[in-house]
Design a protein around this nucleic acid. Structure first.
Length: 884
RNA sequence: AGGCGCGUAGCUCAGGGGUAGAGCACUACCUUGACACGGUAGGGGUCUGGGGUUCAAAUCCCCACGUGCCUACCA
């Protein structure tokens, strides 16, 4: 017999099995079963594993391992995203340490520098995923800027251009002055900040007074080209069309009527700055107003703002302008105000709405079919409610700004000829050809990073080539992702998949739980204090982290997950303890396999109660776990296995059959018992493997088994013939009886060394037979020397008495009994039962309950009531005998 | 402002029309030949509040309060 460590030590085990699996080629599609395929959400190349990733990719691995065991031909393609702004920012930060900016290097050198960085650190997160046990096909690893992928992106752009879906337009877009690029609506976050509402006076040209307008951003007044009031606003009826003189600037601006102005707000008049506000821009379009740009791409006032302000930062300009207006008596009043502020998600700089030239994709046409497939259920969201979230957004979709003023990313494949024509081509050579000798220059901008990732499922399988992989594995089975990128990513993949491959990219979209900190808030990089999954696994092992996360992923509900404190993380500790339990149960079995004929993992038919019971329980565990996994209820699967393994298998089955399978002499009986326990254990390990791959492989290899690895062993099957209601009921009774004896011992402080006698009385022959047949186990587990089962209890002095499952029990306690304590115990028992009876009597006494409730329920209630009443009567006799 | 969640034992959370479950923490006993990362027994909850539907509500519906997320927008 080999020596087995007393406690599970995860680290050496984990290091041993991962290379073995990979070396065996198990991560690649095997066999010719039905297809199960996933393309992972590509983490950013800037990414380091955080706890949310750990959950996301663990879920991937659970499903992959499970399907593989079920005989599917499983493929999972991993990869990374070049992550435009995020990566550029990281490299710029590196440069800053050297006292350089990207402009010092120039575009070409800078991009080279980013590539160096990507080559060095880009794969980091993927190798961290190996540590989590992820069984992905690493040889198919892709990057959103690798050679083939670039082709896909170019192809997409060109085809959309040719279809008229891409256009260039002037728009007020969200501009981050720090990143110096346009950002999309969904890359903007909103925050309420304390600020002021400034009421300013705009004088009429004819000297007939002034109009008061309110603004949160007075510096934009330099770009005003009108003041608007609501058409129905009586106050201004006769002033409409009049001209005002814009203070400080002197420009003449009209008073116009537009629904954008709300009569209830302030004075009802609103200043219009078409070039620096989205709504004002639309008002400007409607009224054909001049669009005056006064702020540049770095957030500074430009030349147009006038010599007094040009070059000033927008916030400094605000102060100066206020002073100047104040000096002219044009500040009506200030008001404290909560200012909704738009911030750049990446760097938290205040976003500046800016009028600029950008590339757009028309979304309406693309959205139509993508709405349909979700409505028809061809693409299914789990949990369902996220489907509604998706539809809400899709039905109100706006055009997508795809150009970014960055250097890192897919350069927009548009060239401009000197005479101003746009040439769109898949490569520079093709563009030159199309230019027919004219000089061309490529657009400076790159594409939004989501423009490339929208193609992910098809592109990683080879699209736009019609590859075998694309043919075989597309559409994929499921997309597992976070809810904050349903719009950014999920929706766009559905649209592009339908457009280019004419087929949905995935059947299911499983939105997994968001991992929150202890206060129930999102972990965010800017706030710091995250849990490092690697620190957790270093402390408790990978399987423990996986299990701790999985048992908490209920129906997309958020998970609260605290940091490690004083080298402890209680949630993972619970899972580690479970791993240790699995380890020790197996260790115990292995220590008792004997020396004779080899033991096998084989169920030997048995009529013994515990055997019938554990087989039935195992069977229903298989059923429940399989159903839970199929339904993405990973917490149910985890909980069911936890309960089965610990409470049923360890606490009762092993305890029950201990003496038998651990016997010294090797009879056929003993060997059969060993086969049975190994069978249950080995099956349990297979059920646990998708959740806890390492420990299960290690133990499985040590147990009698067939095959090379648990990873490719078959998923357990249910067998209806193993259902055994009678065994379950009887076991329940037996457990109740044993527990009652233990309870009496415990409450009466009976030392463990005292082997008692117990009398039981019942008229139920089946219970008599049950106790007799299991007398050995009963005695051992309740520490009883002798059991007597009769029709009626004999007269006993100084005994503790109780009644459970209709069985009267008496435990003689001569010399041990404390009458006071026993009275207390019995009284409490009576109280408990009376409490239950009270509710039942109320119901049974209510005619409408008896009439209207289902007869089963009424009968059940009546039966339970009668049983309780007779039990109470018996306990009251006991009490009397105790001299109460 | 709208949408979507959540509010159950001291803590973290399952459950979900027939008067409540787990883990941790707590109390008592136990180093009994797998495991103290363990065993046995126990204490602890009017399931946020108020209405309604029902024979029956923690569970379904409405309202309120608290809390979180998403979206939109606000001179």
């Amino acid at each position: 017999m080999t020596e087995i460590a007393k406690a599970y030590e995860p680290h050496s085990v984990e290091q041993r099995w991962y290379p073995f699996w990979e070396g065996q080629g198990y991560f690649k599609p095997q066999g010719d079963g039905p297809i199960y395929s996933i393309t992972i959400p590509p983490p950013n190349v800037t990414g380091k594993l955080h706890i949310g990733h750990a959950l996301c990719y663990t879920i991937h691995d659970v499903l992959l391992r499970w399907k593989r065991m079920q005989g599917y031909r499983v493929l999972c393609v991993p990869g990374t995203d070049h992550a435009g702004i995020a990566t550029q920012n990281v490299v710029e930060k590196e440069l800053r340490k050297e006292g350089l900016s990207r402009y010092d290097l120039g575009r070409e050198k800078f991009v080279e520098r980013v590539w160096e960085w990507v080559n060095e650190y880009g794969g980091q997160i993927l190798s961290q995923l190996r540590g989590l046990g992820c069984s992905f096909d690493w040889q198919r690893t892709r990057f959103t800027m690798d050679e083939g992928y670039v082709k896909a992106v170019m192809d997409c752009f060109v085809r959309w251009w040719e279809a008229g879906l891409i256009y260039r337009g002037k728009r007020v877009i969200n501009w981050c002055p720090r990143c110096a690029t346009a950002i999309s609506d969904i890359e903007v976050e909103h925050e309420d900040r304390p600020g002021k509402l400034y009421h300013l006076r705009y004088p009429f040209k004819d000297g007939s007074g002034y109009v008061v307008v309110a603004t949160m951003r007075p510096e934009t007044m330099l770009g005003d080209t009108a003041v608007a009031v609501n058409p129905s606003d009586e106050r201004y009826k006769d002033k409409l069309g009049q001209t005002m003189i814009l203070p400080l600037v002197g420009r003449e601006i009209p008073l116009i009527a537009d629904y954008h102005a709300k009569a209830e707000f302030g004075s009802g008049a609103v200043k219009i700055t078409p070039a620096h506000d989205l709504n004002d821009y639309e008002v400007g379009l409607r009224h054909n107003l001049e669009m005056v740009v006064i702020i540049d791409e770095h957030g500074r006032m430009n030349e147009t703002a006038g010599p007094a302000y040009a070059g000033l930062d927008r916030f400094a300009a605000r102060e100066r302008i206020l002073e100047d207006l104040e000096a002219q008596g044009l500040v009506d009043r200030l008001e404290d105000y909560t200012v909704p502020t738009a911030l750049c998600t990446r760097c938290h700089t205040v976003v500046e709405p800016l009028l600029s030239d950008q590339w757009f994709v028309k979304m309406k046409e693309l959205a139509g079919p993508a709405i349909e497939v979700v409505k028809e259920g061809k693409v299914e969201f789990v949990p369902e409610r996220f489907g509604r979230t998706y539809l809400d957004w899709m039905e109100n979709i706006r055009d997508w700004t795809i150009s970014r003023q960055l250097w890192w990313g897919h350069r927009i494949p548009v060239w401009r000829t000197d005479d101003g024509e746009y040439i769109v081509a898949r490569s520079e050579a093709e563009a030159n050809e199309k230019a027919k000798g004219r000089r061309i220059t490529q657009d400076e901008d790159v594409l939004d990073t989501w423009f490339s990732s929208q193609l992910w499922p098809q592109a990683v399988l080879g699209w736009p080539e019609q590859t075998e992989d694309l043919e075989t594995y597309y559409p994929t089975s499921v997309l597992i992702t976070a809810r904050d990128i349903i719009y950014l990513w999920v929706a766009r993949m559905i649209m592009s998949g339908l457009y280019f491959v004419n087929e949905i990219p995935f059947h299911d979209v499983y939105i997994y739980a968001t991992v929150l900190n202890e206060e129930g808030k999102r972990y965010s990089k800017s706030l710091g204090i995250t849990v490092d999954p690697l620190e957790v696994t270093a402390l408790y092992g990978t399987d423990a982290l996986r299990f701790a996360l999985l048992i908490r992923t209920a129906k997309g509900q958020d998970i609260r997950f605290g940091p490690i404190r004083e080298k402890r993380q209680p949630q993972v500790e619970e899972a580690r303890n479970f791993a240790n339990k699995i380890w020790n149960a197996t260790r115990f079995v292995l220590m008792n396999l004997g020396e004779g004929a080899p033991v096998e993992a084989r169920w030997e038919p048995s009529t013994a109660l515990a055997d019938r019971w554990i087989l039935a329980e195992l069977n229903s565990t298989i059923e429940q776990v399989t159903a839970a996994l199929a339904d993405y209820r990973l917490n149910d699967a985890s909980q069911t296995l936890y309960h089965f393994f610990w409470d049923e298998f360890c606490d009762w089955y092993i305890e029950f059959s201990k003496t038998q399978f651990a016997a010294k002499e090797e009879t056929d009986e003993v060997r059969a018992a060993r086969n049975r326990i190994v069978y249950v254990l080995e099956t349990s390990l297979r059920l646990l493997h998708p959740l806890m791959p390492f420990i299960t492989e290690e133990l499985w290899q040590r147990l009698p088994h067939e095959g090379d690895s648990i990873m490719v062993a078959a998923w357990p099957q249910i067998d209806q013939r193993r259902e055994d209601r009678e065994a379950r009921e009887q076991m329940e009774t037996l457990i109740a009886l044993i527990t009652k004896v233990r309870n009496i011992r415990s409450v009466m402080n009976i030392p463990i060394s005292a082997w008692l006698k117990v009398y039981m009385a019942t008229s139920d022959e089946r219970i008599k037979a049950l106790v007799t047949a299991n007398a050995d186990q009963f005695k051992r587990l309740a520490r009883i020397a002798e059991i007597s089962v009769t029709d009626a209890l004999p007269a006993l002095e100084a005994a503790a008495r109780d009644v459970v499952a209709g069985v009267e029990m008496a435990v003689p306690l001569a010399g041990l009994i404390d009458l006071e304590k026993e009275r207390e115990r019995v009284n409490k028992e009576i109280g408990r039962k009376e409490n239950e009876v009270k509710g039942m009597q109320a119901r049974l006494g209510n005619p409408s309950f008896v009439d209207r409730a289902p007869s089963e329920v009424v009968e059940q209630t009546r039966a339970r009531h009668d049983e309780l009443m007779s039990e109470i009567a018996k306990l009251q006799e006991t009490l009397k005998a105790l001299g109460a």
